[in-house]
Computed example of a mutant assay.
Amino acid sequence: MSEALEAISPPEAAPSKEDQLRQKIHAREAARGWRSFGGPTSYAWREWKLIAPGVRDTAFKTEAGGFAPVITSGTVSVNCSRLAWRQQGGAWINAGSPESTSDANAMVVALCAHLPSSARKAS
């Protein structure tokens, strides 16, 4: 019976151009290793770069949720010696302060906890 059903099933169509582009974009996004910490902001986790002693930065994006587009995106920096972060070169915000968010605090902890103590200190 199953052989008969397979014989009358239509052949699978090749992916459309739109599907191919979606797959390509998804592969690029996956390569960046986007990681979030409970909030709407995700961080390009595999792309952290040392930009100054004790300071690293990477890309971030904040989404509205569902199929909504990205609301904001840019660069986030983390200073592990100060346990502080900032977006787009703005003012430093201390993790755990009233100005900080719980997901930003978790991001700082996740990054800084995995660095050797010598990498967390500013020269």
Rank of each mutant, 00 (worst) to 15 (best):
residue 77 S to I: 02
residue 82 R to I: 02
residue 75 T to D: 01
residue 65 G to P: 00
residue 58 T to F: 07
residue 91 A to Q: 15
residue 71 I to C: 02
residue 53 P to D: 15
residue 85 W to L: 12
residue 64 A to L: 14
residue 69 P to T: 05
residue 89 G to E: 04
residue 71 I to Q: 14
residue 87 Q to D: 10
residue 72 T to Q: 08
residue 62 T to K: 09
residue 65 G to C: 05
residue 76 V to I: 15
residue 51 I to E: 15
residue 92 W to L: 11
residue 81 S to D: 14
residue 65 G to I: 08
residue 92 W to Y: 04
residue 61 K to Y: 07
residue 81 S to M: 01
residue 67 F to Q: 12
residue 52 A to Y: 11
residue 66 G to V: 05
residue 85 W to D: 06
residue 91 A to D: 15
residue 67 F to G: 12
residue 66 G to R: 11
residue 82 R to L: 12
residue 63 E to I: 09
residue 59 A to I: 00
residue 83 L to S: 12
residue 66 G to A: 07
residue 73 S to E: 15
residue 89 G to T: 08
residue 76 V to D: 00
residue 73 S to T: 13
residue 55 V to S: 02
residue 77 S to P: 00
residue 79 N to C: 05
residue 52 A to G: 03
residue 73 S to C: 07
residue 80 C to F: 03
residue 83 L to C: 03
residue 75 T to I: 15
residue 68 A to I: 05
residue 89 G to K: 08
residue 55 V to W: 01
residue 51 I to F: 03
residue 81 S to P: 06
residue 63 E to Q: 13
residue 64 A to H: 10
residue 72 T to I: 05
residue 48 W to F: 14
residue 93 I to E: 11
residue 86 R to K: 14
residue 61 K to R: 15
residue 70 V to Y: 04
residue 64 A to T: 09
residue 60 F to D: 00
residue 88 Q to P: 00
residue 68 A to M: 14
residue 71 I to T: 11
residue 47 E to F: 01
residue 67 F to Y: 09
residue 92 W to Q: 02
residue 78 V to Y: 03
residue 90 G to H: 04
residue 83 L to G: 00
residue 92 W to H: 10
residue 82 R to S: 08
residue 59 A to G: 06
residue 74 G to W: 01
residue 47 E to L: 07
residue 93 I to N: 03
residue 91 A to H: 14
residue 63 E to T: 14
residue 56 R to T: 06
residue 93 I to W: 01
residue 59 A to L: 13
residue 91 A to L: 13
residue 67 F to L: 12
residue 64 A to N: 11
residue 84 A to G: 14
residue 64 A to M: 11
residue 90 G to A: 12
residue 47 E to M: 07
residue 59 A to S: 13
residue 54 G to D: 03
residue 89 G to H: 06
residue 78 V to N: 01
residue 62 T to S: 15
residue 67 F to R: 13
residue 74 G to E: 07
residue 59 A to P: 00
residue 88 Q to C: 04
residue 47 E to Q: 13
residue 77 S to L: 00
residue 66 G to I: 06
residue 47 E to S: 10
residue 79 N to E: 09
residue 72 T to D: 08
residue 68 A to G: 12
residue 69 P to Y: 01
residue 66 G to S: 05
residue 58 T to S: 13
residue 49 K to D: 03
residue 91 A to Y: 12
residue 84 A to M: 08
residue 56 R to Y: 15
residue 88 Q to V: 05
residue 64 A to Q: 12
residue 86 R to Q: 15
residue 53 P to H: 10
residue 48 W to A: 05
residue 88 Q to K: 11
residue 92 W to I: 06
residue 47 E to I: 01
residue 71 I to P: 00
residue 51 I to V: 15
residue 88 Q to R: 11
residue 84 A to R: 03
residue 78 V to F: 05
residue 72 T to R: 14
residue 50 L to K: 13
residue 79 N to F: 03
residue 52 A to P: 01
residue 61 K to G: 04
residue 73 S to G: 12
residue 81 S to Q: 12
